[in-house]
Design a protein around this nucleic acid. Structure first.
Length: 852
RNA sequence: GCGAGUGUGGCGGAACUGGUAGACGCGCUAGACUUAGGAUCUAGUGCCUUCGGCGUGGGGGUUCGAGUCCCUCCACUCGCACCA
């Protein structure tokens, strides 16, 4: 007999919904717990990654609720983004319609999983009632100088008439039309995240609940480095070239300079010289390559001599200035002093262009020379060839030389960050409009707060060419908020990472209509106590969200510094791939007995990798739920691997979980009478009662501790073990006391399993005679005293090898235990006639005897 | 190249502060019940073996005792990468 999961699951889902079981309100008398999983992009349907993510979150949310916390567990939709626009181009369907229909479908799918969301808090970021507040924050940021507009170099496809992200450039060509991508200067809006670099970095040392890996990635991304800025005057030129270096100590070894091709001075340096055309071509050639191939490993170092010389401000030497392909405009000042003896890249360049290599750092006990060295030396040493600084060690020299440069006013100490300001402009339709207006007279003017939201227009055509917003007369044409003259709207929309940077706070008061959120609600619920999602968001999303939270704090909206107290990055869901020599990648259901069902060819089983549509190694949650039910789908995702590790899909493993649920189902239905009868006899002890109590309390302890530490797989294992035990003991249950304890055990087991497999637990709870929701039950407590057994097995080791087991009363003392060990037959065999050199006793664990 | 992580049976994975390695599940073997079973139940299942020995990627070390601590090497995975 198998249980009817379809019927049971849908009926309990309806009951939970009817009773608003998971609705939650602020309650100052209760301790809050904010459990959040990363909200999905409504791409069409959910995948196993979602199931795993949300199952993990649901265990925690349900557990904390049963523990008595006031648990907020919301869900919503990251609803803006390019796929909706692509669908619009392809299927002539409006992005909004496409998005909302996906949301409806996916919401039904999530509901079928029985997740304990408070759906009353649902939000979709494409709702004007949501992005309106983002526009407000944008304007407030503008007022505080945290937003600016600047021209920068972007990847541009002339055919599509749009900007491309780096990842949309494939081998220098547009991913959609194959047209050559060019670098173009374009206006765009930026958030000053760099102003928060220091604080963002600082707090990575305070976020104790985050994986070290993620924090490291963020620190590297912020990329703080100490060094100096040094200005090199150029002969016959007004503006000096400013460089950033972390090695001011090597300034005497700077034998040439390089500037980035994009550097504003690059073109100016060659202007009017006979080499101008040649130089412009060089710049063009370098910039034509997309960034990815330009930064490829082993990229050959190329340069163009500008014909100009700069003066090394410390040696007064004239050194040649090159434009170099390996100098990045994005980092530092976009120009460097090249010290070939002590930097490998500069060394390679010097070799290629036959430039002098001068050693200025001499490692102890060696005698490097520029003529003979085969590679740059970047280590510690003593300064040489450095005038008055000779003899200093590297660290001291850095300080002294920087100080000297400052005195001469040609440089100063500086801190450089790798992180750049956040460019939020997207030339797209399906995003939050940037709320500014361009007026001929007043310039760039923010939209008046009372005129928000700036809504997306509907009279738009999706042709795939250009930004659809530009085609909307209704949208573009407006009046200036300041002088009322006719003006044009900004047609850029915001990066969708902006929406996901504060949705978690909006969840605190999702219907608030006079502010982004109610401050008291935000302060009550925030920060998120546990955030759960994929590690792929380790940098962008999590850094932007941290930044935006600080912005909201500094604008006075909320009083917290960091949004996410604890972070769990769950592993990927993986599965082996199948490939048919004729039909390519196959879905699992297209393979039968190792053969392709279309052509009967032998199918090649590939390696286990992340489930992806392109490789077809996917399992459709819908089919899984249909066949086994949501409880099984959840249980397998939780049991097959610890949450933070990758999970390998196994159809047989799923079967095993289904089998376990059936086992529970049978155990309880078989014993429902015992459970229903109201017994209250607990006085007479027997082996069975002791066994029941011991296992019951150990299991409560184990499951509780495991959930707290996210060892969800072992928590499930503990429940399985207890189930096995109950099957074993079921026939020994005779006395009233035994029955009472058996019933208690069974019911407690159900409570412990509720966070994992809530539907079947509700059903069985009812079958055992309860009329309440098991989801509302209190989490059981364990009694430490019941976990102590009368006797304990003590292991006897002789010279490190286990030779005997002794069953002794728990807490037997050293003398008695040793006596027992020595009188043991097996032990005697080893120790007779030998010298006992050492005796080690670990209470309730082991005895270790060393003999000679 | 830099940084982080992982490595345990046929497989997924357990093992608290060093203290019986392999919990739990899958698979496999045998048996029971069955017309039959891919349902269910029971027993067994690291390897080699006669006592006994060997086993947590390899090698070395500390210790009465090491999957766990230290050194070293190897493999794989992920992130970053011409960052001045």
């Amino acid at each position: 007999m198998r249980y009817d999961h379809t019927k049971i699951e849908s009926s309990w889902q309806k009951l939970w919904e009817k009773h608003k079981s998971y609705k939650v309100e602020k309650d100052e008398n209760k301790e809050k717990f904010y459990c959040l999983e990363m909200f999905p992009y409504p791409s069409g349907k959910i995948h196993m990654g979602h199931v795993r993510n949300y199952a993990i979150g649901d265990v925690l949310a349900r557990y904390k609720k049963m523990k008595g916390f006031n648990v907020i567990h919301p869900m919503g939709w990251d609803a803006f983004g390019l796929p909706a626009e692509n669908a619009a181009i392809k299927n002539k369907i409006h992005p909004a319609k496409w998005t909302y229909s996906n949301i409806n479908f996916m919401k039904e799918q999530l509901k079928k999983l029985g997740l304990s969301y408070d759906w009353d808090r649902e939000i979709a970021t494409c709702d004007p009632e949501y992005y309106k507040w983002e526009q407000l924050v944008f304007i407030k940021m503008m007022e505080k100088g945290l937003v600016y507009n600047k021209t920068s170099n972007v990847n541009w496809c002339d055919d599509c008439n749009t900007v491309l992200a780096n990842e949309q450039v494939e081998e220098g060509k547009c991913w959609r039309c194959g047209n050559e991508v060019e670098i173009k200067e374009l206006d765009g809006w930026f958030f000053k995240i760099s102003e928060y670099a220091e604080e963002l970095l600082d707090y990575t040392y305070k976020l104790k609940g985050w994986p070290e890996k993620v924090l490291t990635m963020q620190r590297n991304w912020i990329g703080k480095s100490h060094g100096a800025k040094i200005r090199f005057p150029v002969k016959g030129f007004d503006t000096p070239i400013e460089v950033f270096t972390t090695r001011p100590d090597t300034v005497y070894g700077a034998t040439f300079m390089l500037i980035a091709p994009e550097h504003p001075l690059a073109k100016k340096l060659i202007a009017g010289t006979e080499k101008e055309n040649e130089g412009l071509n060089f710049i063009k050639d370098v910039l034509k390559e997309d960034k990815i191939s330009r930064m490829a490993e082993d990229k050959e170092k190329k340069g163009f001599f500008t014909g100009r010389y700069a003066m090394n401000p410390i040696t007064k030497e004239q050194i040649p200035v090159y434009i170099g392909n390996y100098v990045l405009m994005d980092y530092g000042t976009g120009a460097i002093m090249a010290v070939p003896a002590h930097d490998q890249r500069d060394f390679d360049f010097a070799k290629a262009y036959n430039l002098p290599i001068r050693v200025v750092i001499q490692p102890e006990g060696e005698n490097l020379s520029g003529d003979t060295m085969g590679e740059a030396y970047a280590g510690e040493g003593i300064l040489v060839n450095s005038g008055e600084f000779n003899g200093l060690d590297v660290e001291t020299a850095k300080e002294k030389i920087t100080e000297y440069l400052r005195e001469k006013e040609v440089g100063e100490k500086t801190v450089n960050y790798r992180i750049k300001d956040w460019g939020i402009s997207r030339q797209r339709y399906w995003g939050a409009p940037i709320p500014v207006v361009y007026c001929k007279k007043c310039g760039v003017v923010p939209v008046k707060k009372e005129d928000l939201p700036v809504k997306l227009p509907l009279d738009v055509e999706f042709t795939g060419i250009g930004n659809p917003l530009e085609s909307s007369e209704e949208f573009i044409n407006t009046t200036c908020p300041q002088c009322s003259a006719p003006a044009k709207r900004e047609t850029d929309t915001m990066d969708t990472f902006v929406e996901s940077s504060w949705y978690f706070i909006r969840f605190c008061s999702p219907k608030c209509n006079n502010a982004p959120f109610v401050k008291e609600e935000g302060n009550y619920w925030m920060p998120v106590d546990q955030y759960i999602g994929g590690v792929e968001h380790a940098i962008m999303h999590l850094l932007y969200a941290r930044f935006f939270t600080k912005i909201l704090r500094d604008l006075g909206f909320i009083d917290i510094d960091e949004p996410f107290q604890n972070l769990l990055t769950q592993g990927m869901v993986c599965k082996e791939t199948h490939k048919c020599p004729i039909h390519g990648w196959l879905f699992p259901e297209e393979v039968e007995n190792g053969k392709c069902i279309i052509c009967d060819s032998e199918v090649e089983v590939g390696r286990v990798e992340k489930m992806s549509k392109s490789k077809k190694n996917v399992v459709d949650p819908d089919l899984l739920i249909k066949k086994y039910g949501a409880d099984t789908a959840r249980l397998f995702s939780l049991f097959a691997a610890p949450p933070d590790r990758d999970l390998e899909w196994s159809d047989q493993g799923v079967e095993g979980c289904y089998r376990f649920i059936n086992r529970i189902f049978r155990l309880i239905t078989k014993n429902s009478e015992i459970c229903k009868t109201n017994l209250n006899e607990k006085s007479e002890e027997s082996d069975t009662t002791k066994e029941l109590e011991f296992n019951l309390h150990s299991t409560i302890k184990k499951v509780t501790e495991d959930i707290e530490t996210f060892h969800l797989n072992t928590a499930v294992a503990a429940c399985m073990e207890f189930t096995n035990k109950l099957y074993q003991l079921e026939n020994n249950v005779n006395t009233e006391t035994e029955k009472t304890l058996f019933a208690e055990s069974v019911k407690t087991l159900l409570v412990l399993l509720t966070p994992f497999i809530p539907h079947v637990c509700e059903e069985l709870w009812k079958i055992t005679g309860n009329e309440t929701f098991i989801s509302d039950q209190k989490w059981p407590e364990y009694d430490e005293k019941k976990i102590v057994r009368d006797t304990t097995t003590i292991v006897v080791q002789i010279n490190g090898k286990v030779r005997a087991n002794l069953d002794l009363p728990t807490d037997t003392g050293k003398e008695e235990a040793l006596a027992a060990a020595k009188s043991n037959e097996k032990v005697q065999k080893y120790i007779n006639g030998k010298n006992l050199a050492k005796e080690i006793f670990v209470p309730n664990k082991l005895i270790s005897l060393v003999i000679k």
